[in-house]
Amino acid sequence: MHRNPCIALVAGVGLILGGCGDALDDDPDGGGARETREVEDMLGRSVEVPESAKRIATVNVDAFRMALHLGVEERLVGIPSDMYGSRFSEAKPIEVEAFGRLDEVAMVGGGQPGSEFSAERVLATEPDLFIYWAFSRGDDDQAMAEQAERYEQQLGVPVVALNTLGRERASQEAVEEQIEQAYRLLGEVSGREERAEELLDFYHATVSAVQQRVAGEQPPRVYLAHRRNLYNHVSFYFPVELLGAEMVTAGRAGDDGEVSAEELLSWDPQHILLHTPSRASRVERAEVLDDERLSGVAAIEAERIHRFKGTYMGWDLATGLIDLVHMARVLYPEAMAGVDLRDRGEEILEVFYGDPGLYDRLMELSSLEDG
């Protein structure tokens, strides 16, 4: 079961992260009249929320993960339905493993950005805050904001929209700003501002340590394959951007989409990375190596085929850091010599989730070390 320990460990990046945020309120009902505050959500909406929300319902997997990261999982009264037992995976992902109350908390629908949910199930949880997505592939920010307003009127409780990775990916700075905004916003509405800052400090220190190691290295050419099909590419993954690797699909029109064998031959990537959120959702490595259409591609000839966990109904900052370390090790092996992925992965997951042993579950699902 997930714990909320005071973090005082030396992480693999050499960062000492000490101290805990304020202790959780022992009176979840508030004990009387509750103060409110105005916050601005990630759609630019001004929302009046409880001073510190005690009963949180969400269909947003990013928000579910972040609630565990911030140590407020006991306040979750409604959670997304599709995290576990969905078409993506019958096995429990690490965030579900870390959440010890899965059988006790109502599943209210949703999961992926912009997905449908049951208003009746949400209302039955009697929340004082509902967290929705600030992003979906099908709607722009204005449409999402209007939808959030409709949900607020329908539910009769404050609706806050957020996510860790959204539509704005024009630069590393823009993505970092989104990540920081998401954690600070949830930290503010849950009264866990200090914990949010600790996690952001740890995140930035880890990224900086890896980037310093690989600085000056020749960027390799990489191709990111989608979980469904080698010939369906992933156009953006933030850890790859942070490492400065050369995406062979850069400049190609459109977002994720189909590519041809001829294109892969012409791009000649040095590494192929396979999106692997679970064992039920993956391209088999042997299938890639045995594809005669790709004979002559550098990554195939050298058998440089690697897995990465990637996104899964949103993005987990913790597994994103593990992907960063893992990708740095396979793309820049000399610069990352001596860095043990298991040690770093264990530390990262314990910092964010508080539970030891989650790294083994991640390896079982995503196979980062054995290809």
Rank of each mutant, 00 (worst) to 15 (best):
H2P: 14
I7T: 13
V10Y: 11
G12E: 12
L17N: 13
G18K: 12
C20Y: 04
G21C: 02
D25L: 10
D25E: 15
D25H: 09
P28K: 03
D29F: 13
G30L: 04
G30N: 05
G31V: 04
A33G: 10
R37W: 06
E40C: 09
E48A: 10
E48R: 09
V49T: 09
V49W: 05
E51R: 07
A53C: 02
R55M: 03
R55N: 05
I56Y: 03
A57L: 00
F64M: 00
F64D: 00
F64S: 01
L68I: 14
G71C: 04
R75D: 07
V77F: 01
M83G: 09
M83P: 07
Y84S: 10
G85K: 04
R87F: 13
E90K: 15
K92D: 09
K92S: 13
E104F: 01
M107F: 07
F117D: 06
A124Q: 15
A134R: 13
A134Y: 12
M144K: 11
M144N: 15
Y151N: 05
E152I: 05
E152K: 11
G156C: 08
A161H: 05
N163F: 00
L165W: 13
E168K: 13
E177Y: 11
E180V: 11
A182V: 01
R184F: 02
S190A: 09
E193L: 07
E193N: 13
F202H: 09
Y203L: 11
T206H: 10
S208Q: 08
V210L: 05
Q211N: 04
E217H: 05
P219Q: 06
L224C: 01
Y231P: 11
N232Y: 14
H233K: 07
Y237M: 10
A245P: 04
A250R: 14
R252N: 03
R252P: 02
L265K: 08
H271A: 14
L273S: 08
H275M: 05
T276G: 01
S278Y: 03
S278G: 15
R282C: 09
E287S: 15
D290L: 15
R293L: 14
L294W: 07
S295H: 12
A299C: 00
A299M: 01
K309D: 12
Y312P: 00
A318E: 01
D323N: 06
H326L: 09
M327F: 08
M327Y: 03
M327T: 08
A335L: 03
M336H: 11
G345Q: 01
E347R: 13
E347I: 04
V351H: 04
P356K: 04
L362I: 12
E364T: 12
E364F: 09
E364I: 07
E369N: 10
G371E: 12
